[in-house]
Design a protein around this nucleic acid. Structure first.
Lengths: 111, 111
DNA sequence: TTGACACATTCCTATATGGGAATATATTGG
DNA sequence: CCAATATATTCCCATATAGGAATGTGTCAA
């Protein structure tokens, strides 16, 4: 079996750095494909293909306005990723605490 | 160009559902490979290969204890994902607010 | 040293890209 | 209807899996 399709879920879709770049850009506001192309400095077909993947997993929504297609982020689709990572938050906070404790032990070593 | 390597970063590593399963399992406590194999119901070579990927991006750490290798999560490596998703949190909260407002408008329609 | 247990690695294959190039489709103005 | 603009899709190819099967490596007990 090969790797799961990029359109299988949001986790796979955002694994590609270019697609995260696009989402970051769209986070500010709705944009046309040409605006994305200019901002990302990618070829137009590449942008369209990435947008198709993002749309496939619901990470963006599109609407036509004249000749242009306007895309915007659907932030709710990112929420599952946020929640999954949150389950580890307690663990890394604990890790950081131990790092801090160790640093303080070095600042005030036993005489 | 093909897809980025699964070992290129944490985003690519956790795109695979089985690897998230393993991380979820290790979140509870350090485990040996056999324990993971039993819990995940996967073939041992598959588990070893997934662990290698996870270790490659620093998501897990390993230490030998006798014949066993004990793996544990390095939660700090998940933090970048959490922080990236957090940048969209304001957006989805706003989305939810609008959904709620619309619902309330329907509960009390104009007469 | 030898056998057995616990893992890791290699080999093979079907599958899914992502980018570049070329082409198709949709919409608007004249 | 035609040309121009804005996107989308298709074709081609090099690359990277993930799983199954087989095999290699490391460690311990006797």
């Amino acid at each position: 079996m090969a790797r799961a399709a990029t359109t299988s879920d949001a986790f796979n879709a955002v694994a590609e750095p270019r697609r995260r770049d696009i989402l970051n850009y769209l986070a500010m506001q709705e944009r046309s494909v040409s605006e994305i192309v200019d901002a990302m400095q990618m070829e137009q077909p590449s942008v369209s293909k990435h947008l198709k993947v993002l749309k496939g997993v619901g990470l963006v929504e599109a609407r036509r306005e004249g000749r242009q297609m306007l895309y915007k982020v659907n932030a709710l689709a990112i929420r599952p990723l946020h929640e999954w990572t949150s389950t580890f938050e307690r663990l890394w906070k604990h890790q950081l605490l131990r790092v801090k404790e160790r640093a303080e032990a070095n600042d005030a070593p036993k005489q």
